[in-house]
């Protein structure tokens, strides 16, 4: 028992160290080149610094894996054991103890249950987020970053989308130098304000034409609030780090299907209204309209 706890502490410690070192990596990346890199060969110095940090992270990760493999999972549900007799305690000041005990028992029981489920899911689904290409030639072709794209590439891409639909007009503004915010007017139905980060869609707000272009306030109408929610789901669905153009274009196709937001009935129940809202969901593949409750 004593040994178990010690190992658990060691593992938790290792995780802590890993997290803090990963934090350093991101801090260094976000700071970019600093003054203390000097003038000569500053790029090389920065890369070396990053490499050192990443090596540390790698070592820490190995430590975590070692520590975790030493752990033994608890055999089954915990037993309350002799502590159950606390319920028969007669002294006034100790009577409260039993309630707390039962509560913490419930907690540990829940944690056991959830972690078992989570462990199972993680085992079956790989969580590797990095897209790996193994052949060198292929790697050259794929864009290494979708966050850092030259502005004219984005510009071309947006104007290509603009030409794609006649009833959708796009106006671009660049409050943050590189990253454009576009305002899409979809017929006379709605307008969408979309913020880009490179070629990645970062934020979408749907509003009525009469409302302000502010990206942070949501629409005052229920229906546009719902559509905003759904477009966030679609934004995540169409996110494709390897094919950013395709991702953005599919999202625009999907958004374009809202041209019939008020006029087309739900595909499933054939009604216009459900809880006083028109069909606010569009199927991601077929673009057919559904109510939130019908999809």
């Amino acid at each position: 028992m004593e040994r178990d706890v010690e190992q658990l502490h060691a593992a938790l410690n290792a995780v802590k160290i890993l997290r803090s070192n990963v934090g350093y990596v991101f801090e260094s990346v976000s700071n970019g080149l600093r003054a203390d890199h000097g003038e000569d060969g500053k790029d090389a110095k920065f890369v070396t610094e990053l490499q050192v940090l990443l090596t540390t992270v790698n070592n820490n990760l190995r430590d975590v894996e070692n520590a975790v493999s030493n752990l033994t999972s608890p055999p089954g549900a915990f037993n309350l054991g002799n502590t159950t007799y606390l319920s028969q305690e007669t002294t006034q000041e100790r009577q409260a103890l039993y309630g707390q005990l039962v509560n913490s028992y419930k907690w540990t029981d829940k944690i056991r249950e959830y972690s078992a489920v989570a462990g199972h899911i993680l085992q079956t689904n790989s969580i590797s987020k990095t897209y790996k290409t193994f052949s060198m030639t292929k790697r050259r072709k794929t864009q290494t970053s979708i966050h850092n794209v030259p502005p004219d590439v984005i510009e071309n891409h947006i104007s290509a989308i603009d030409r794609l639909f006649t009833d959708m007009t796009i106006t671009t503004s660049r409050p943050f130098v590189l990253n454009p915010i576009i305002q899409v007017s979809l017929g006379r139905v709605l307008k969408a304000i979309i913020a880009f980060k490179g070629l990645m869609i970062e934020w979408v707000v749907i509003k009525a034409h009469a409302e302000s272009n502010d990206i942070w306030t949501e629409s005052r109408y229920r229906v546009f609030q719902k559509v905003t929610e759904n477009s966030h789901a679609a934004m995540c669905h169409f996110y494709a780090p390897t094919m950013p153009e395709l991702g953005v274009r599919s999202f625009m196709h999907w958004l374009h299907s809202y041209i019939t937001l008020f006029s087309s009935p739900c595909k499933k129940c054939a009604n216009h209204l459900h809880s006083n809202l028109p069909p606010t969901w569009r199927d991601l593949r077929t673009l057919e309209p559904y109510h939130e409750e019908c999809k």
């Binding site: 009469a210 006029s263 009935p265």
Partner: peptide, 10 residues
């Protein structure tokens, strides 16, 4: 939310 009668009459 709608400003065109034809779209939302139904």
């Amino acid at each position: 939310p709608c400003i065109v009668p034809a779209m939302c009459w139904d």
